[in-house]
Amino acid sequence: SEEEIREAFRVFDKDGNGYISAADLRHVMTNLGEKLTDEEVDEMIREADIDGDGQVNYEDFVQMMTA
C-alpha cells in the first residue's frame, strides 16, 4: 500500500531530508545485517535513482518498490 511504501521510505531516509543517500542506505542495510561494499551501495543507488541526481527521492523509491 502507499502508506507502507511511505513508511519504508521514512526508515531509509535517516536524516528526514526527503532523499535516501548512499549513507542512509548503507546504514539501513548494515542494521539488517547486510555487509555491503561501497561499490555495492553505490550500484543500488544508481539503479534506484531514476532522475539521475545521485540520491533516491520519494518518487524514485515508489517506482523501485512497485516495479
Score class of each variant (00 low, 15 high):
residue 46 R to T: 06
residue 66 T to L: 13
residue 31 N to Q: 13
residue 10 R to T: 04
residue 44 M to K: 04
residue 6 R to I: 07
residue 65 M to N: 02
residue 66 T to A: 12
residue 62 V to G: 01
residue 36 L to T: 03
residue 52 G to C: 10
residue 35 K to N: 12
residue 60 D to L: 15
residue 12 F to N: 02
residue 42 D to V: 06
residue 50 I to Q: 11
residue 2 E to I: 14
residue 41 V to C: 03
residue 15 D to F: 07
residue 61 F to A: 02
residue 14 K to H: 12
residue 8 A to H: 09
residue 49 D to P: 06
residue 17 N to G: 05
residue 9 F to R: 00
residue 30 T to P: 01
residue 28 V to Q: 01
residue 9 F to N: 01
residue 60 D to P: 15
residue 51 D to V: 08
residue 61 F to E: 00
residue 33 G to N: 14
residue 63 Q to N: 11
residue 30 T to Y: 10
residue 8 A to M: 09
residue 4 E to C: 13
residue 2 E to C: 13
residue 38 D to L: 09
residue 25 L to E: 00
residue 61 F to G: 00
residue 40 E to K: 12
residue 22 A to D: 04
residue 62 V to C: 02
residue 66 T to I: 13
residue 59 E to H: 08
residue 33 G to Q: 08
residue 24 D to C: 10
residue 49 D to A: 09
residue 32 L to T: 03
residue 23 A to L: 07
residue 61 F to S: 00
residue 54 G to Q: 04
residue 60 D to A: 14
residue 33 G to D: 12
residue 65 M to K: 03
residue 34 E to G: 14
residue 14 K to L: 12
residue 11 V to Q: 14
residue 43 E to T: 12
residue 1 S to L: 11
residue 23 A to H: 09
residue 22 A to W: 08
residue 34 E to F: 15
residue 43 E to L: 14
residue 67 A to G: 09
residue 5 I to G: 00
residue 33 G to P: 06
residue 16 G to N: 09
residue 19 Y to P: 00
residue 54 G to F: 04
residue 47 E to C: 15
residue 2 E to L: 14
residue 51 D to A: 12
residue 18 G to E: 01
residue 63 Q to I: 08
residue 62 V to E: 02
residue 65 M to L: 15
residue 58 Y to D: 00
residue 60 D to V: 15
residue 39 E to F: 13
residue 63 Q to R: 15
residue 31 N to E: 14
residue 10 R to K: 11
residue 34 E to W: 15
residue 2 E to P: 13
residue 54 G to E: 05
residue 24 D to L: 05
residue 58 Y to W: 12
residue 29 M to F: 06
residue 40 E to L: 10
residue 32 L to G: 02
residue 45 I to P: 00
residue 22 A to L: 15
residue 56 V to L: 08
residue 44 M to L: 11
residue 33 G to H: 11
residue 53 D to F: 10
residue 55 Q to R: 13
residue 2 E to V: 14
residue 65 M to W: 05
residue 42 D to H: 06
residue 23 A to I: 07
residue 4 E to Y: 09
residue 36 L to H: 08
residue 22 A to P: 11
residue 21 S to W: 04
residue 25 L to A: 12
residue 2 E to Y: 11
residue 26 R to V: 09
residue 19 Y to A: 03
residue 42 D to F: 08
residue 7 E to Q: 11
residue 6 R to A: 02
residue 6 R to T: 03
residue 61 F to Q: 00
residue 40 E to I: 14
residue 11 V to A: 13
residue 11 V to P: 07
residue 10 R to W: 03
residue 37 T to E: 04
residue 23 A to F: 03
residue 51 D to G: 11
residue 63 Q to S: 08
residue 37 T to A: 06
residue 9 F to G: 01
residue 1 S to N: 08
residue 67 A to C: 10
residue 16 G to C: 06
residue 55 Q to L: 13
residue 17 N to I: 05
residue 10 R to P: 01
residue 6 R to K: 08
residue 55 Q to A: 07
residue 41 V to F: 15
residue 40 E to G: 04
residue 29 M to P: 00
residue 45 I to V: 05
residue 12 F to M: 08
residue 57 N to G: 08
residue 42 D to N: 12
residue 65 M to P: 01
residue 61 F to D: 00
residue 10 R to Q: 10
residue 23 A to W: 02
residue 37 T to W: 05
residue 22 A to F: 11
residue 27 H to S: 07
residue 66 T to D: 04
residue 62 V to Y: 06
residue 37 T to R: 06
residue 38 D to Y: 09
residue 32 L to Q: 03
residue 44 M to R: 05
residue 18 G to A: 01
residue 41 V to W: 14
residue 24 D to P: 00
residue 52 G to P: 13
residue 2 E to T: 08
residue 12 F to A: 04
residue 63 Q to H: 14
residue 20 I to G: 00
residue 60 D to M: 15
residue 47 E to F: 15
residue 22 A to K: 13
residue 67 A to N: 13
residue 35 K to F: 11
residue 53 D to C: 08
residue 49 D to V: 13
residue 58 Y to H: 01
residue 3 E to S: 11
residue 40 E to T: 07
residue 56 V to A: 03
residue 45 I to N: 01
residue 21 S to R: 07
residue 27 H to D: 07
residue 62 V to I: 15
residue 30 T to R: 15
residue 40 E to V: 10
residue 49 D to N: 14
residue 16 G to A: 05
residue 3 E to M: 10
residue 53 D to Q: 12
residue 48 A to E: 04
residue 10 R to A: 12
residue 39 E to C: 13
residue 32 L to D: 01
residue 8 A to I: 05
residue 26 R to D: 01
residue 9 F to L: 11
residue 28 V to N: 00
residue 51 D to P: 06
residue 21 S to T: 09
residue 12 F to Q: 02
residue 65 M to S: 02
residue 51 D to H: 13
residue 26 R to I: 12
residue 67 A to Y: 02
residue 40 E to M: 13
residue 5 I to C: 04
residue 5 I to M: 11
residue 30 T to W: 06
residue 18 G to C: 02
residue 42 D to R: 05
residue 36 L to F: 14
residue 51 D to I: 13
residue 14 K to G: 05
residue 42 D to K: 06
residue 66 T to C: 08
residue 51 D to L: 09
residue 56 V to H: 02
residue 49 D to M: 13
residue 45 I to E: 01
residue 50 I to T: 11
residue 62 V to N: 01
residue 62 V to W: 05
residue 67 A to V: 08
residue 23 A to P: 04
residue 57 N to L: 11
residue 22 A to C: 07
residue 34 E to R: 15
residue 17 N to L: 07
residue 16 G to K: 06
residue 17 N to C: 05
residue 39 E to I: 08
residue 41 V to Y: 13
residue 22 A to V: 15
residue 53 D to E: 12
residue 9 F to V: 02
residue 45 I to F: 11
residue 17 N to H: 06
residue 41 V to L: 14
residue 4 E to Q: 12
residue 18 G to W: 02
residue 62 V to T: 04
residue 58 Y to P: 00
residue 56 V to I: 13
residue 36 L to R: 07
residue 13 D to H: 00
residue 1 S to I: 09
residue 64 M to C: 15
residue 1 S to A: 08
residue 44 M to D: 01
residue 23 A to Y: 03
residue 2 E to G: 06
residue 19 Y to C: 04
residue 19 Y to H: 05
residue 53 D to T: 14
residue 66 T to F: 10
residue 24 D to R: 02
residue 55 Q to I: 09
residue 65 M to D: 01
residue 55 Q to D: 07
residue 31 N to L: 15
residue 2 E to A: 13
residue 16 G to P: 00
residue 38 D to G: 07
residue 64 M to P: 01
residue 12 F to Y: 10
residue 52 G to A: 13
residue 62 V to H: 03
residue 46 R to S: 07
residue 16 G to E: 04
residue 27 H to Q: 13
residue 30 T to C: 08
residue 1 S to Q: 08
residue 19 Y to S: 04
residue 7 E to R: 10
residue 25 L to S: 02
residue 31 N to D: 08
residue 38 D to P: 13
residue 53 D to A: 10
residue 12 F to W: 06
residue 26 R to Q: 06
residue 44 M to C: 10
residue 58 Y to M: 05
residue 21 S to P: 08
residue 52 G to H: 10
residue 4 E to L: 10
residue 51 D to Y: 10
residue 26 R to N: 03
residue 58 Y to E: 07
residue 3 E to W: 13
residue 29 M to S: 01
residue 64 M to T: 05
residue 47 E to S: 15
residue 59 E to V: 07
residue 6 R to M: 08
residue 7 E to P: 01
residue 8 A to N: 04
residue 29 M to R: 01
residue 61 F to T: 01
residue 38 D to S: 12
residue 62 V to K: 04
residue 21 S to E: 05
residue 46 R to V: 05
residue 34 E to H: 15
residue 60 D to C: 15
residue 21 S to Y: 06
residue 36 L to Y: 14
residue 34 E to Q: 14
residue 52 G to N: 09
residue 13 D to N: 01
residue 29 M to E: 00
residue 39 E to A: 12
residue 19 Y to I: 05
residue 9 F to H: 00
residue 29 M to D: 00
residue 1 S to Y: 12
residue 34 E to C: 15
residue 67 A to W: 01
residue 31 N to T: 13
residue 1 S to W: 14
residue 55 Q to M: 14
residue 19 Y to F: 11
residue 15 D to T: 08
residue 2 E to W: 15
residue 66 T to M: 14
residue 10 R to S: 07
residue 48 A to W: 12
residue 51 D to E: 08
residue 11 V to F: 09
residue 45 I to C: 04
residue 62 V to D: 00
residue 18 G to V: 00
residue 3 E to P: 05
residue 4 E to K: 13
residue 28 V to A: 11
residue 25 L to G: 01
residue 40 E to Y: 08
residue 26 R to C: 03
residue 52 G to Q: 12
residue 22 A to S: 06
residue 8 A to Q: 09
residue 65 M to A: 04
residue 20 I to D: 00
residue 63 Q to C: 08
residue 29 M to V: 09
residue 8 A to E: 04
residue 30 T to E: 13
residue 12 F to T: 02
residue 38 D to A: 12
residue 21 S to V: 03
residue 5 I to P: 00
residue 30 T to N: 11
residue 49 D to L: 10
residue 13 D to R: 00
residue 54 G to L: 04
residue 59 E to T: 04
residue 31 N to P: 01
residue 54 G to C: 09
residue 18 G to T: 01
residue 26 R to W: 06
residue 20 I to P: 00
residue 43 E to M: 14
residue 22 A to I: 15
residue 10 R to H: 11
residue 37 T to Y: 05
residue 35 K to I: 11
residue 50 I to A: 11
residue 50 I to G: 08
residue 48 A to Y: 10
residue 21 S to N: 09
residue 45 I to Q: 02
residue 23 A to C: 05
residue 13 D to G: 00
residue 11 V to N: 11
residue 29 M to W: 03
residue 7 E to F: 03
residue 31 N to R: 14
residue 17 N to Y: 05
residue 38 D to H: 09
residue 31 N to I: 15
residue 57 N to Y: 15
residue 47 E to L: 15
residue 46 R to Q: 08
residue 53 D to S: 13
residue 5 I to Q: 01
residue 29 M to N: 02
residue 28 V to E: 00
residue 6 R to N: 03
residue 11 V to E: 14
residue 17 N to R: 08
residue 8 A to V: 04
residue 18 G to K: 02
residue 8 A to P: 01
residue 11 V to G: 06
residue 21 S to A: 10
residue 62 V to F: 07
residue 37 T to V: 04
residue 38 D to R: 12
residue 13 D to Q: 01
residue 58 Y to F: 07
residue 42 D to S: 10
residue 43 E to Q: 14
residue 8 A to W: 07
residue 40 E to P: 02
residue 17 N to M: 08
residue 46 R to M: 07
residue 39 E to D: 12
residue 13 D to F: 01
residue 63 Q to F: 09
residue 54 G to D: 05
residue 46 R to P: 02
residue 52 G to W: 09
residue 15 D to M: 08
residue 11 V to I: 10
residue 33 G to Y: 14
residue 35 K to L: 10
residue 53 D to R: 11
residue 67 A to Q: 14
residue 1 S to H: 12
residue 1 S to P: 05
residue 59 E to Q: 05
residue 36 L to P: 04
residue 49 D to Y: 09
residue 41 V to K: 04
residue 15 D to Y: 07
residue 33 G to E: 04
residue 19 Y to L: 08
residue 64 M to R: 15
residue 20 I to M: 03
residue 63 Q to Y: 08
residue 35 K to T: 09
residue 64 M to A: 09
